[in-house]
Design a protein around this nucleic acid. Structure first.
Lengths: 184, 184
DNA sequence: ACTAAGCTACCGTCCAGACGGTCGGCTAAG
DNA sequence: CTTAGCCGACCGTCTGGACGGTAGCTTAGT
């Protein structure tokens, strides 16, 4: 069984995903024991890969951003039209990810001190993408605010709205990227 | 000294405000000890008013919504013009409240199970206010999303943006309430 | 090619401290 | 006198992380 052999990177990834699942199962504030059990590894083994609980959660954060960026890039339109980055972000935000955008996961990550700096890095990266996107600043601002709002709503009001509502909102935002000039 | 006498409602309020301060000082996951000390009351006294930690945080949640609603009502325009509720919400959202909208406080509240139901109640109340507001649904939807986004940004990217940016966003949203008809 | 040495991945136990909550008691208020 | 507000000591539990150990992998020396 090749899967049984030692393999640090693989174990590391499995621990991170197990952490996400354990977070959902046990709520924010899971114990390292629970994560280790979910990952099928001993607590000692877990702490070998992540020396502290904070480090583990920071690993989760990095994985989170990586996934989002990968999704955005996969949704980029091939032609270089105005608003293509913004549209990719819109589609990515509306792509549900039950595992990684679960309230418990995000709540846990919000309490990690490292979040601030990584968030700043990610925010400037995203801003660069949308700043050179050819959209009127007013539109770009409004759309990015709305996308943040959709993210927040996913955390607090999930299943409060129908998937039809969601599609309407998404289509509206997409349409807003297809016109030039100011909004008002 | 009249302030030193026993007074249950006052102590209760003081405990709640102390909880907010302690949350900011010690991060989410403050101990009851720390809250009690901040409130100038013993731990037993604290637990006399809130039988569990959850109950204390639930009290914080209620206070939070009460304050927001009070602010919204104080910002309502006297004349019954279309969009007046929406504009009040916009102004309220852009009214900074360093104590109550601090990341640590919100993070702590996000972990409280009771939040969900109280959030649902508040959400339907706000929706009723803005549904009968005379705005085109598209506009109402977009604006409320953007407001959620501003709230989220306050939590994650505070001082990442200038107060000038904030004002521009606020003015844009306000202007969006002053026109009838669809956006696109 | 063989092997010994050293390193890395991983295990399982242990512990000190923190924390939520209980309880018996005291005292002001009514 | 009774009750509600409040005190502060106490307890059981849980958890992060340290630590000493073990076994697989890599590499160097022969």
């Amino acid at each position: 069984m090749p899967g049984e052999q030692r393999n640090a990177p693989r174990t590391r990834r499995e621990v991170i995903e197990a952490a996400a699942r354990a977070l959902i199962a046990h709520g924010p504030g899971v114990s390292l024991d629970a994560v280790a059990k979910e990952a099928g590894v001993s607590k000692g083994g877990l702490l070998h890969h992540f020396r502290t609980k904070q480090a583990l959660l920071a690993g989760l954060i990095d994985e989170w951003f990586d996934r989002y960026d990968t999704i955005v890039e996969s949704l980029l339109e091939p032609e270089d039209t105005p608003g293509r980055w913004t549209r990719a972000h819109i589609r990515a935000t509306f792509t549900p990810d039950d595992l990684w955008s679960h309230p418990s996961v995000v709540t846990a990550l919000l309490g990690v001190p490292e979040l601030q700096q990584r968030m700043d890095v990610a925010a400037t990266r995203w801003r660069q993408q949308t700043d050179s996107d050819g959209l009127h600043p007013q539109r770009a601002d409004l759309i990015s605010r709305a996308l943040d709002g959709v993210t927040l709503a996913d955390l607090l009001w999930r299943d409060q709205e129908t998937s039809e509502d969601r599609e309407h909102t998404r289509d509206l935002l997409l349409k807003l990227t297809e016109q030039p000039g100011p909004l008002v």
